[in-house]
Measured scan of single mutants.
Amino acid sequence: MATGGRRGAAAAPLLVAVAALLLGAAGHLYPGEVCPGMDIRNNLTRLHELENCSVIEGHLQILLMFKTRPEDFRDLSFPKLIMITDYLLLFRVYGLESLKDLFPNLTVIRGSRLFFNYALVIFEMVHLKELGLYNLMNITRGSVRIEKNNELCYLATIDWSRILDSVEDNYIVLNKDDNEECGDICPGTAKGKTNCPATVINGQFVERCWTHSHCQKVCPTICKSHGCTAEGLCCHSECLGNCSQPDDPTKCVACRNFYLDGRCVETCPPPYYHFQDWRCVNFSFCQDLHHKCKNSRRQGCHQYVIHNNKCIPECPSGYTMNSSNLLCTPCLGPCPKVCHLLEGEKTIDSVTSAQELRGCTVINGSLIINIRGGNNLAAELEANLGLIEEISGYLKIRRSYALVSLSFFRKLRLIRGETLEIGNYSFYALDNQNLRQLWDWSKHNLTITQGKLFFHYNPKLCLSEIHKMEEVSGTKGRQERNDIALKTNGDQASCENELLKFSYIRTSFDKI
């Protein structure tokens, strides 16, 4: 039985969820670079991206490699990797027998973001014989899940209580170790020597080791999670996991709180800001991140802002960003909400898709409305799209047979046209069989910064309504002859009103 693990408890099935942008060198404390989270699957090609990484700022997932063999891993080693800020997950990587050479110096898994409450997941690794993470000293947050690894031993010899604050939620089941077939031998045991430290858990006094050649490092209890030197002297209180010299914040392997210019500090002093819960960055760093993602459509890219001495992905609820200094300031009234469309555009074809934009005031991208039916549609669209004030790209209304009016965009005031449909149009209306009105132009103002209007096959939309939009939106004169079809717009509506004058002759039985 794995020490510190839980057996036999019912657990939810383990679901495996399925960018080499360097964020800056980590400095003297770390020998390499800070790398983003990685999802490495199918083959070993991307694994080489770990070569210079000291910190993975995010998670590391290595999974679904069915053609790899043990010899493929023999020359692979990433000794610079010290810390993973989120979680480490391995799933069905064939041929991998140990992690001792792959990650010989991995010391800390912070667990800032977890995989279903777990910071370390080893699942269905069919050839893994031992973990071998002999320098792993601290899992700051989260638990361990090690399950269905039929060859995995050296679990009962690990004292997880020396690595985690609590072992109650560890789930370590259905491994070879369960069948008591392992016969784990710690260093020196074969020669009758006791080389590794022994600890007591559940009444068992057991030597602690990761492999037959690597003991588990056990520091004096007084050192807590700070770690200790090879001689057993406690590291500085700002260290986490390990250090090369005692009581020196510049000799830590990793930091308990924050890293700044080669030393570990309790908090980031001005003019620095907390970033990702582990390091200090200056304003320029946060500003660069903001600008890199301002026009990016890459998933996970955030326009970072500053709030409460932190550089964070977005302002919290009730705050909006001051564009001059990136500071989050309290909103006066309802907060603006910028919604970034991942692929640059979004099609609204149902109430469900409209709900995804609920509360958005600025759309960074283009909207395509293609709704053919739905219950209580006008009210639903207004509830979900009615706060949109600005669209950076274009607005396209296409084959939306259920629409009679666009009044559900009740606050839309600006279409920038930074991206144009077919390279020309910022407003595009095609084949809307029941569209009769755009907006009530006596109450609604709309500016279209650039781009043209396109109207074709809107049989109940009168040309007068379209011409009014040209005047109000500032697009009059931009359109070419064929942009607004004269014969297919309003051709099934009563669009022309003329005053009919009647004269009559009164007659009676005795007068003409």
Rank of each mutant, 00 (worst) to 15 (best):
N43W: 05
P36T: 08
E49N: 05
C243P: 00
N308P: 02
K217G: 03
N52P: 14
M125Y: 00
P79S: 06
N308V: 11
E57K: 04
S112E: 15
Y154R: 05
A190N: 11
T85E: 02
N325K: 03
S143Q: 09
G111T: 00
I82W: 07
L128H: 01
N282Q: 02
I306E: 03
Q245L: 08
A198F: 10
T194L: 13
S161C: 14
S98K: 04
F116P: 01
D261S: 09
K129I: 12
R141W: 06
P269S: 04
D86L: 00
P36F: 03
P271R: 13
G262V: 04
Y273P: 05
G142Q: 01
C293Q: 01
L133I: 14
P269C: 01
S284M: 11
S77H: 01
G183E: 14
C293G: 05
H302Q: 14
I56A: 00
T194D: 03
T199N: 11
N295A: 06
E168I: 12
C293F: 02
K129L: 06
V265I: 07
Y154K: 02
C196K: 11
P336H: 13
L327I: 05
S143A: 14
E130N: 11
Y118R: 03
C252T: 04
F123P: 00
P249Y: 03
N257H: 03
C53Q: 00
V121K: 00
R46S: 14
C35D: 00
Y94F: 11
E180G: 05
F78W: 03
Y87S: 01
R279V: 04
W210A: 03
T140C: 08
N42A: 09
L102F: 14
F78M: 09
Y319S: 02
L44V: 13
L99H: 00
Q61V: 12
H274T: 15
S317G: 06
L174K: 06
A156S: 10
T85M: 06
N43A: 07
P313W: 15
N135E: 04
S323T: 14
G142K: 01
L60K: 00
P104Y: 00
Y319W: 12
I222V: 04
K176Y: 03
L133S: 13
G95I: 15
D75C: 08
W160H: 01
K217E: 09
N150P: 12
I185C: 15
L64V: 05
T68K: 13
D184Y: 06
N105I: 02
S112G: 05
G203E: 13
M137W: 13
V200L: 04
C235V: 00
P104L: 01
P197W: 10
C335W: 03
D86F: 00
I56C: 01
N52W: 11
I109C: 00
G300K: 14
S225Q: 13
T189Q: 08
F285W: 09
K176T: 14
P220C: 05
N175S: 05
A190Y: 15
I146R: 00
Y272A: 03
N242W: 12
F258W: 08
Y304W: 12
Y87P: 04
C234Q: 02
H127R: 02
L44T: 11
G241R: 05
Q287E: 06
R110H: 10
N202S: 13
S296I: 09
T199G: 13
C209D: 02
K224G: 08
L152I: 05
S225G: 05
N170P: 06
P336Y: 11
E238V: 03
G318A: 07
G32Q: 13
N242D: 09
E124S: 05
I109L: 06
P246Y: 03
L29V: 11
E97T: 06
V305P: 04
D178T: 06
C182K: 05
F78Q: 02
D248E: 04
T250C: 07
D248N: 06
F115L: 08
W210Q: 14
N150L: 08
V93I: 04
L47P: 02
E238W: 02
N257K: 12
C53T: 00
K129A: 12
F78K: 02
L99M: 12
N138L: 07
K176A: 05
Y134G: 13
E238Q: 08
C196W: 01
D165R: 09
T229M: 12
G183Q: 07
A198M: 07
K176D: 03
L102Y: 04
M38L: 10
T45K: 12
Y134E: 06
T85C: 05
P270Q: 09
D39C: 10
A190V: 12
N117Q: 14
M83L: 10
P316H: 03
E151W: 11
T45Q: 02
R141L: 12
G142A: 02
P316M: 07
P104K: 01
Y304A: 07
C264P: 00
N52R: 06
M38S: 03
D178Y: 13
I201S: 15
M38P: 01
S77R: 12
F283G: 09
H291P: 02
G37D: 08
F283D: 10
W160M: 06
A156L: 03
C268E: 00
Y118Q: 15
L81C: 01
L260F: 10
F258D: 03
R46T: 03
R110P: 00
V108C: 03
I40Q: 01
G192C: 12
T140I: 07
R298G: 06
G227S: 08
R69M: 08
S237G: 11
P246R: 12
I122T: 04
C280M: 00
W210G: 03
S323R: 02
D165T: 05
N105F: 05
Q287L: 07
K80Q: 09
H307V: 07
R256D: 04
S244M: 14
I172F: 03
A198V: 05
Q303V: 10
R162G: 04
A198C: 12
D159P: 09
D165N: 05
K224W: 03
G300I: 05
V108M: 13
D177H: 10
D75L: 10
K100F: 09
H302R: 07
S213I: 11
D184W: 07
S213T: 14
H48P: 13
Q299K: 00
G95R: 07
C223M: 01
S244H: 12
K100H: 15
K176L: 02
L63Y: 15
V173L: 11
R145S: 08
N202Q: 14
C252V: 00
A254V: 04
C315V: 06
R113G: 10
W160T: 01
T68N: 02
L106K: 00
W210C: 03
V144G: 01
Y134M: 11
C235R: 00
N149F: 02
E231S: 06
A230M: 15
L128Y: 00
I146W: 00
C268S: 00
E147M: 02
D247I: 15
M137A: 06
G95F: 05
R41F: 14
H274S: 13
G183L: 06
I222S: 04
E151C: 07
I201D: 12
C186W: 01
V218I: 12
L327V: 03
Q204A: 06
N179R: 12
P104N: 00
I146C: 04
C235L: 01
G203P: 05
Y118M: 08
F73K: 02
N242P: 08
L63F: 06
L44P: 06
V144F: 02
D75T: 12
N309S: 08
T45V: 05
D178E: 13
N149L: 00
F275M: 14
L332G: 15
D277T: 07
L81D: 00
S161K: 14
I62K: 00
P269I: 15
Q299V: 06
G32F: 09
N179M: 05
V93H: 14
C239G: 01
Y171T: 04
G111V: 00
N175V: 04
K193N: 10
A254K: 01
N175H: 14
I201K: 12
N43D: 09
S225E: 04
I306V: 13
S324M: 12
G333E: 15
N325L: 08
Q245T: 04
D248R: 04
Q287S: 10
M65Q: 05
L152K: 01
E33A: 03
N309K: 09
G37R: 03
G111P: 00
H59I: 03
T107D: 02
N295P: 04
N175Y: 04
V121Q: 01
L76V: 13
G132M: 01
Q216T: 04
K129W: 06
V173T: 05
H274V: 11
I82A: 12
L81S: 00
A156Y: 14
L63T: 14
P316I: 11
C196F: 15
C280P: 00
V126T: 03
Y272L: 10
S54L: 10
R46A: 15
P270N: 15
D178W: 14
P336N: 13
G203H: 07
N325Q: 10
Y273S: 07
Y30D: 05
C264A: 00
N282L: 03
L90W: 05
P36H: 03
D247Y: 13
T107K: 10
I146V: 11
Y118S: 04
V93S: 01
